[in-house]
Design a protein around this nucleic acid. Sequence first.
DNA 1: CAGTGTTGATTCGTTCATTGAACCGAGTAG
DNA 2: CTACTCGGTTCAATGAACGAATCAACACTG
Lengths: 176, 176
Amino acid sequence: MALKKGYAGQDCSLARTLELVGERWTMLVVRDAFYGVRRYSDFLAHLDIPRAVLSARLRTLTESGVMERRRYEESPPRDEYVLTEKGRRLWHALFALLMWGQEFAGGTTVRRRYLHAGCGTELEPSGGCAACGRAAVPPEEVELRPGPAADGPAARQDPVSRALLRPHRLLEPLET
Amino acid sequence: MALKKGYAGQDCSLARTLELVGERWTMLVVRDAFYGVRRYSDFLAHLDIPRAVLSARLRTLTESGVMERRRYEESPPRDEYVLTEKGRRLWHALFALLMWGQEFAGGTTVRRRYLHAGCGTELEPSGGCAACGRAAVPPEEVELRPGPAADGPAARQDPVSRALLRPHRLLEPLET
DNA sequence: CAGTGTTGATTCGTTCATTGAACCGAGTAG
DNA sequence: CTACTCGGTTCAATGAACGAATCAACACTG
């Protein structure tokens, strides 16, 4: 996991959470999985992550039950990595971190907007929907849309980034 | 920050957030700050963190405006580290990670409970209060109480851990 | 059926971060 | 003067991340 002894001695839910998803890159892999990324090569292209690290992260995520490796084609054999229920439940934590970054670490450019699908309202920073009165919108009901700064000069040009310029339901496989 | 180039190329709120609070130990330092820990030696005793790492984390947290270093005694000169508004706004993300760990990474033992102070209701996993209908309870209104497994055999014995066995309002300085 | 391309990796040398112990300096109490 | 506490820094050893190269399985092309 992390370094020498994990967070030994910290018998705390947060420490245990960080053992699973607190390593470098792990949360970004999970974020991409919410965005609909499923294939090794797509994670690789979108994250600019060393291959060895991506392999290691996908392995620990599947071993801990956050993601699941699934054969979706027999010939040629192709596997995909998808979030399990356990993984999907990370949405609120991930969204909270995202909103915090948008407010405090971002500057002014909004690259992506998160809407409550159907209702069409933008999600609250708390992850709820003001229009519906839902305190916690599950990721299946969230639609991702490009924000005003989505296609700016600093935008990435890989296939995944381009695919994310189209409105897209979270967790649905991405069309690259 | 992190390794060679941070998360260069990931122009995303989440990546920027992780640049600030995604390093090893950082979130645990922030958690302790919510618990009321303020002094270098108390972080050290409670976290079992190498001194060099604690110094580095406190420095980056103050440099990025998440925490503030404050002189609270002139002779002998003593400083304390407290969360800024920017830091306090991390509460919801931190609480979401905590709840996820309690459900999925914890086992069955609940060491701490989080109540809406005044109202006395236990917080929802979403961070809201069902009784008051508040979608997002701010940390100032959260009371921390020991749960059933708080004083179990695996409990730490440092002064900070012992102080946390008493009911305690978040962010209030801890009496050690 | 040899050559080329794609996918999903592993291996390896270099660079960087973490660890834990030792050390240090300011200040104070005895 | 000595001892002790607080809040660090320094240092050698270790482990993780990086990026490039390589590899194996399979499909497609000519």
